[in-house]
């Protein structure tokens, strides 16, 4: 058998070791995702990239591609499930898109547009989450954290600092900072760190840069996330 699989009926090649997500991205096929970033090891936590392979739902970012796989991706059922996952993310955090400085550049918001999410559906939790502004150049707003661990992975794998981690269980899970005080200002984080660049929402931000890019020139103002990310844009 040749090294190909089909996604929604389209035959695409893959190289041994690639995941379904890797192969799809290389072929310009968009699979929605939030916690995945091709620069880092797959994480498989957000489940937005769930596809159906030979009748079974799997996370495409962690499932190795295999010859002859029949993958369903852009289907009403899968997109409906993805929309529900997004609605849960919106309901359990405090995502105030109308005033958020990442609006127009936010992957979470862009995915919600892409998947046709018109309301949160679930009752909002309105959790009380801390804002950590102790760092001179970086703001950590936990209201917008979706626990994707991209900053955790970037700080560990690229920056070699292990500044971030997740603590707690279930709905009590929260992003914590590796510092004696637990404050970002007392951590080893530098504004130039990769960890600061990879947040898909507005949880980690460089201070005093908000709204510098005018409406009309933001990442998702003219192209949906499906086009931006298949063209290689992630940050």
């Amino acid at each position: 058998m040749s090294d190909t699989l089909t996604i929604d009926g389209k035959e695409i090649p893959y190289r041994p070791g690639q995941t379904i997500m890797d192969a799809a991205m290389a072929a310009g096929v968009y699979i929605p995702h939030l916690c995945h970033n091709p620069e880092f090891k797959p994480h498989g936590s957000c489940k937005l990239c769930m596809v159906n392979v030979n009748g079974r739902n799997v996370a495409s970012c962690t499932m190795p591609a295999a010859s002859g796989m029949t993958v369903l991706n852009d289907t009403p059922e899968l997109n409906g499930a993805r929309r529900s996952l997004l609605q849960m993310l919106f309901a359990e955090g405090n995502h105030l898109c109308p005033v958020c400085e990442r609006s127009g550049n936010c992957h979470l918001q862009a995915l919600a547009y892409y998947l046709g999410m018109t309301n949160p559906h679930y009752v909002q939790f309105y959790p009380s989450r801390e804002v950590d502004a102790s760092h001179p150049d970086v703001l950590l707003d936990r209201n917008r954290c979706i626990m994707c661990e991209l900053c955790v992975r970037a700080s560990s794998e690229v920056d070699g600092k292990d500044v971030f981690g997740l603590s707690g269980r279930g709905i009590q899970t929260r992003l914590v900072v590796n510092a004696p005080t637990g404050l970002l200002g007392d951590s080893a984080l530098a504004v130039s760190d990769k960890a600061v660049q990879v947040c898909p929402t507005g949880a980690l931000l460089i201070k005093r840069q908000g709204y510098r890019v005018p409406v009309g020139r933001r990442m998702f103002d003219h192209k949906p996330i499906s086009v931006v990310q298949t063209e290689g844009g992630h940050d």
């Binding site: 005033v99 400085e101 804002v131 502004a133 703001l139 201070k207 005093r208 840069q209 908000g210 709204y211």
Partner: peptide, 14 residues
Amino acid sequence: QGRPYWEVPVLVQR
């Protein structure tokens, strides 16, 4: 209160 100052011009116009 507790929000960063650069957010305020966009926030309070609501």
